[in-house]
Computed example of a mutant assay.
Amino acid sequence: MPLAEGEFKLTYSANGVHPGAAFTFGTVRSGYYLLDDFEVKDTDVTSGDAPLPREDGVRHGQDYTTGAVITFEVGVDTVDDGDTLLERHGANLDAVSVMKQAWDAKAVRDRMATPAVLSTTQGGRARRWYGRPRQCAKAASKLTRQGYTPVVATFATAHTGSFDDVEQSVRVDMAPPPHRGIKGPLKEPLSMVGEGTVRVPGEITVRGNRPAWPVITITGPISQPVCELVGKWKFGLNLTLAAGEKVTVDPRPWARTVLRGSGSVAGLITRGSPLLEDLLIPTGRQDFVLRGTDATATAFMTVAWRDAYAYL
């Protein structure tokens, strides 16, 4: 079910005996409504500033941020879930426990480089963050026995800004698409067969107001594959993929992997390729091309991305 305006959803997968979560909150219908507007606070910048020797002033260096912290003040409301004080109290304790279990996130805390996803709809826009739930503390309240408890919870993101909740993708083939031709016998007026394309294969439009991270999957048979973002960068791999074999390049900050199956082939990135941290797609119209050696012309790649925003 799609999120209603103002709702949030915390999701992550199960891991062994530790359960996953799909916890919805933020509105009255969820039973966990916000008491105040949520706060998105970027963490302090780690600056590379250095004082100038023997004089006043400073030389600015490279600066870095370490993500944002999102804070929620949530009212856990079960006032209507029982006819007696005891029933309302019990229902409220259960509801608070459900939230704290989702926020505990043991399933992702046990795994390196594995984020949870926090999705929301704000102003009709579906957005998401990647990170991990952190604090989830019940505030002191005399109303818990009446069926109401305020809770303060935080979510630490692995990045600044947010991403579109809808992932987009394009398939780029080694072989060009069939060309339109002339239908015989030739008569006046001449007619063309075949449907015209609305875009060039490999053409995409990145919206948002920040560069986007692509997830690139190349499917063989192909040798020395190269993914080229025309006019921007070329990313190559010194390997050969058999028919149906795949390699996935994921430069997103919480992943930073180059995998063939479950094994890393990051050591086979060709010289001259950009660092994974620089593998970004600028906003606007862009073109992707797959290059390499493929006698069958059946190799292809898929480029998937989410539009990125400085806020929402």
Rank of each mutant, 00 (worst) to 15 (best):
P214W: 00
C227K: 05
K232F: 08
L241T: 08
L229W: 02
K232L: 05
L229F: 02
P221V: 10
T240V: 05
V230E: 15
P251C: 01
A243F: 04
A242I: 07
G236H: 09
S223F: 04
G231K: 03
N238Q: 05
G244D: 13
N238K: 04
K246Y: 12
I216T: 05
G231T: 12
V226T: 15
E245W: 14
L229H: 06
C227S: 15
P253V: 09
V215G: 00
K246V: 13
P225G: 06
K232A: 10
I222W: 13
I216L: 06
P221R: 09
G231R: 07
V226P: 04
A242Q: 14
Q224W: 03
W233L: 01
P253G: 03
S223T: 10
F235T: 04
L237W: 03
D250N: 15
I218V: 15
L237Q: 05
G236C: 01
K246T: 15
F235R: 06
V249A: 03
G244F: 13
D250Q: 07
P225E: 09
G220Y: 08
V226C: 05
V215C: 07
P221K: 08
T219Q: 09
F235K: 07
P253D: 04
G244M: 14
G244N: 13
T219W: 06
V230T: 14
V226A: 12
G231N: 13
T219C: 05
G236K: 08
S223K: 11
V230N: 09
Q224D: 15
L239G: 02
